[in-house]
Amino acid sequence: MSSELLFQQALNGLSFGALLFILAAGLSLVFGMMDVVNLAHGAFYMLGAYVALSVVQLTGSFWVAMLAAPLALGLLGLILEPLLLRRLRGRHLDQVLLTIGVSLIVVDQIGVVWGREVRSLAAPAGLDGSVALFGGDYPAYRLFVIGLGIALAAVVTLVYRRTALGMHIRAGVEDAQMLGALASWPRRCSAFSRAWTSTRSSIPWSSSWSAASARSAGRWWAASSSVRPTPSARCCSRSSLSR
């Protein structure tokens, strides 16, 4: 294997890794902070890509879509969280079942609204070209995804380490662990509920963030190839859009 090819493959791995990181950040944020296991995360990711597709078709702007899709999915999170998930606090199994149901609905409705065939979306001007790197051409959009992943990682780290909110999260997590080690169930419960109260104020923020992650992750596919159900997007969906 030539060194250019090796380098390109490494970049491919990195950009796909960045995509997965953006996707996983939302998932683990919701699990870590809200103690919610969301198996509809992949469906939200998929929905984000389709919302972006529609916004691009309407406005012609990738950047407007980049803003609109997280807002739209954040709104969905704002509606779904109190409506469905709040009453399942601490009941992981029920959360899993419920979010599987949600993902079935979301994926099926995407098929109804956007059709069941493969759709594609071009990268925006400025990111649609290639960059010469180490004697080969590399798609600029994928470099953008890598950058976005690194930026998100930096923001998450900063929030976690330096802000009051991050402190609350850390306290909640450590408390739960320590009390869990003592195997004292009521105390563990109270630790969870404390973690819950301390993070409740940030729920709109975290759900929109998770949706945003799914969305921007969805974009990567939208621009790099086509909108289609990928294994990760379908993590819990049965119907296939390309069927």
Partner: peptide, 17 residues
């Protein structure tokens, strides 16, 4: 109705809740 999956999903959500 061509939305069998949606019906199943709604059933699932309703029964869990």
């Amino acid at each position: 109705v061509p939305v069998a999956e949606t019906v199943l999903g709604l059933l699932f959500v309703a029964f869990v809740l």
